[in-house]
Amino acid sequence: MNYTFDFNAVSLGPLLDGLIVTLKLTVAANIIGVVLGFPLALLIMSRVSAIRMPAMLFVEFFRCTPAIVQIVWFFYCVPMLFNVFLGSTTMGILALGLNLMAFNAEAYRASIQAVPREQVDAGIALGLNPLQRVLYIVLPNALRASVPVLLTNGIVIFQQSALVAIVAVQDLMYQAKTLATETYRPIETFTIAALIYFAVSFPVTQIVGHLERRRQVMTS
């Protein structure tokens, strides 16, 4: 191999600016996903099919189409259909946030349904009414169980956010692409970009692993 690596040709400044945009996208999308995913989970568990069906359609749309298609669709079709354009970053946040909301709703639903029947029985035996059983037994149990999945989904969105570069949001990926073109050093640039993504994601995955091990001890 006669390629000489030159990492000095890549200036970190723009990449770190891009990282800040990426983190903003991630945090904003996670706020949407974590907060609104929960009521959405309640809708998909509704016994009324007029409520359940649209909610499930929403979730399945986001789960069954590529994120990149969703982002492009949002960017081009929403302004046309609704006559609003909110700026590329806002559109990126909305697309990522709604995507995450769908996945988090599934995470909430799964953990609510995974609360053991025995826990509810114990609540009945203690005279708690249905609302009290949900508030004091089912939800605290379920929300704790959902934390590792929410974190995993959150970190997936951190990585997926790289896709918004194609609609000109100046995130880490966008900056890396620009820099690679300017410096003719794509290998070095994308290596550094990858390391930055890794440096943020890896600790979170470790935290998830730790939480899951602790939960196994708690529930056994």
């Binding site: 025995e118 826990q119 029985d121 114990a122 035996a125 004091y136 037994i137 605290p140 149990n141 704790r144 708690m218 529930t219």
Partner: peptide, 11 residues
Amino acid sequence: MVFQHYTLFPH
């Protein structure tokens, strides 16, 4: 009632 598997609330 007391159950076979304790059913204490873990949280």
